[in-house]
Each structure stands twice: as C-alpha cells, then as structure tokens.
C-alpha cells in the first residue's frame, strides 16, 4: 500500500499538517462569517454586496480545496487518481454557468411578457411586523398558492 511508504517520511509532519489545515479552515470560516455579518445592512442590489458574495464564494472554494486536498488526502495521491476525480468535476463549470444564465433569462422573459408575474413581485405584504404567529398562516399562504399557478 502506498501508505506504508508515505507515513515513514511524514509521520511527525502529518499531525502538524492536520493542525495547520484545521487552523486554516477555522480562519476561513471566521472570515466568511465576518463578511456575512458585514453584508447584513447593505442595499440589495449594491455593488459592494455582490463583491462580498463573490469573496464568500472564493473562500468557500478554498475551504473545499483544503478539505479535499488534505483531509481526503487527494493532494498526496498519484496524478492519475487526482485527474480521474478532478477532471469530471470540471463539468460543474459548464453546469453552473449554463443553468444560472438560464434562470436569469427566464426571469427577464417573465418580467417582460408576464405582467402578472411582474406585478406580484411589487405588492408588499404588510402584516409581518406585528403579527408573529396567528396571522401568518392566513395572510401569506394564500398569495403563495396563487403564485404557484403562475409558474
């Protein structure tokens, strides 16, 4: 097995590496949370908000890299194994891009050609602030049902 060869050379280093990766993952999560708290009061369509979301996604991907590379040990495997796992996952690049663009285009089409869809997204439901438990079920569930018909 590959490991009998592997752990002789970084037996002492392995625990050190685990500790290092743990610290990195915790710091990345903490930064994500700080960004999340920072984002809270911002306007919805602000450019800074979008930039923070992008930063959070980059942090997420680097966390994924550390988990797969070090905890799942993929970084220390043979190149063949790395390629057989990573290359098919590259399909996600197309997958995500195509479907998100599709969703976005669908929204634009509906806003252009479906006045009812557009109108529904401008009517504010007021009763939220004071009523916490009882009214919710009667007030908000009803429009939801109507909306499903539109879709």
């Amino acid at each position: 097995m590959s490991h009998t060869a592997t752990h002789e050379e970084h037996n002492g280093g392995a625990v050190k590496e685990i500790v290092r990766v743990t610290i990195i993952l915790s710091v990345l999560t903490a930064v994500e949370l700080i960004l999340g708290f920072w984002m809270m009061g911002m306007p919805l369509d602000g450019r800074l908000r979008l930039a923070i979301k992008g930063a959070i996604i980059i942090l997420m991907l680097s966390k994924a890299f550390y988990i797969v590379g070090y905890f799942m040990h993929l970084k220390h495997e043979v190149k063949n194994l790395i390629m057989t796992i990573v290359v098919p996952l590259g399909l996600f690049i197309w997958f995500i891009t195509a479907f998100l663009i599709d969703g976005n285009s669908f929204r634009n089409l509906r806003n252009t050609y479906d006045p009812y869809f557009k109108e529904r997204s401008t009517i504010k439901v007021e009763k939220k602030a004071e009523a916490k438990h009882e009214e919710k079920k009667t007030e908000t569930v009803a429009p939801v049902e109507e909306k499903k018909v539109v879709e």
Binding site: L44, R120, E126, K128, H133, T140, V141, V144
Partner: peptide, 21 residues
C-alpha cells in the same frame, strides 16, 4: 413551528413582497 415546511412558507421576501414555497 413557525409554519415553514414543504409546501408552506411563512417568510416574506427581502423587500416585503410575498414569497413562493
């Protein structure tokens, strides 16, 4: 217990409009 489940959404959208399930 807040009323959220599959097929029921008690929460409103960010801008105060009705949300879907």
């Amino acid at each position: 217990h807040e009323g959220a489940w599959w097929g029921s959404n008690p929460f409103l959208n960010h801008d105060g409009t009705a949300s879907s399930t």
